[in-house]
Amino acid sequence: MYAALDIGGTKIAGALVDERGAVVHRAELPTPARESARRMARTVDAVIDALSATAAWSAARAVGIASAGPVDTVSGTVSPVNIPAWRDFPLVDSVSAHPELSFGPEPILLGDAVAMAAAEHWIGAAQGADNALCMVVSTGVGGGFVLGGRLHPGTSGNAGHIGHISVGIDGPPCPCGARGCVEGYASGTAIARYAVETGWSPMPGMQPSAAAVAASARQGDERALAAYDRSARALAAAIAGCAALLEIEVAVIGGGVAQAGDTLFGPLRRHLRSFAALGFMRGLEVRPAALGGDAGLIGAAAAARRHHEEIGVPGSPAVPRSRT
């Protein structure tokens, strides 16, 4: 078993994941995102408490943590944009201090989109690909790379921040400080905003959102279709840029916006044919993610499993970790 934590702005989830990538036990609590750093840490501890109370806990060999970012995997700290109390919070040290986590190597930290890439490469839509980009397109846009058959988190753990590639040098300003970022065109927030600005309104009983825009698009609403086409074009430009630099074979798209199905993937594949024009890029595939809401947990477990195998003997009993 491998213990996994997935920390986001809405929920803190934990799981025990087996050698096949199956979630065996799960625990979850709402994220107290507007409360103190200490309250946040206690909630993480409570999720670990719930997992450690199960019989399968004794089989746990390592721990992985997926967190909303930015993250710093060198220092083991996180500064999630949507959790104001955590700025340079020492999450790895905090989790390591839990009395039930005195086994195995130190917990391994990943950004949530990098964890998604680890999961999809292990048992999901990128399985078998040596070079892949996996993206989360939701309220924001994030990503992670697999290169040469291995996860590539980068020096600080933030490689794959595709949402902040500029696809419009004179585009709208982004909160990150740049202009024309993919996130400003392709996120769920951006889709809904653009649709409203062009005169779209949701169907009765629905609030403005990417899902509501998708519902209108399926009914043939031209403004809704245009909003998704704009999103797809920005994604295609960014994916093609990554393919030109890194020769990725597969781009996997997950997150809430991907739930629009062909409303997103149809124009995305069409635009990608235009942007990925060089011969070595023409075989690039775009696939929907396979693992849904479990991707963060499975990816954290995948990273913990890989780390455990690299520094220890696979399948060996847990080795107590020194507290000195």
Rank of each mutant, 00 (worst) to 15 (best):
G148V: 00
M116C: 12
P107N: 10
F103R: 08
M116E: 13
A56C: 03
A125D: 08
A97C: 08
P80L: 04
S67R: 00
A85W: 13
L147I: 10
H98T: 15
L133V: 07
S79T: 15
F145E: 08
A129G: 04
Q127H: 11
G111M: 00
S96A: 15
V95H: 15
R61L: 10
H121F: 02
S52K: 02
I83C: 10
A62L: 05
S96F: 09
A60H: 03
E100N: 11
D72N: 15
W57D: 10
P107W: 10
A60Q: 06
V137F: 01
T73C: 15
L110F: 08
G111H: 12
F89C: 14
Q127C: 05
W122G: 04
T139L: 04
L91C: 13
A118M: 09
S67V: 01
G144K: 03
S102A: 15
P99C: 12
S138N: 04
D88N: 11
V137Q: 06
A66E: 07
G142R: 01
V95L: 07
G111F: 02
V81E: 14
S96K: 12
V63C: 03
G140P: 04
I108H: 02
P105W: 03
A118K: 03
L101E: 14
F145T: 07
G76M: 14
H121W: 12
E100M: 11
G76F: 13
L109A: 09
E100Y: 09
V146L: 08
D130P: 00
G143Y: 04
A126F: 04
A119T: 10
D93I: 05
I123Y: 00
E100W: 09
I123M: 09
A125C: 09
G128W: 06
S79Q: 13
N82S: 13
W57K: 06
P80C: 09
P105D: 09
P84T: 13
V146I: 12
A53Y: 04
G124L: 09
D72R: 07
A113C: 14
G144R: 04
S79L: 12
I83T: 12
G128F: 08
V63Q: 06
P80G: 09
V63Y: 01
A117E: 14
D49R: 08
W57Q: 12
D72K: 02
D88W: 01
S96I: 09
A85R: 11
V141C: 06
T54W: 02
A132L: 05
N82P: 09
P105N: 02
M116D: 11
T139F: 00
A132V: 02
S58A: 13
A125T: 07
A132H: 05
S79G: 11
N82L: 13
S58N: 01
E120I: 02
V74W: 02
A68T: 12
L51I: 06
G69C: 11
L133W: 06
G124V: 00
C134Y: 04
V71Y: 07
N131A: 10
P107A: 09
G64N: 05
A126L: 04
S52Q: 10
P107V: 08
I108Q: 10
A55L: 01
A132D: 12
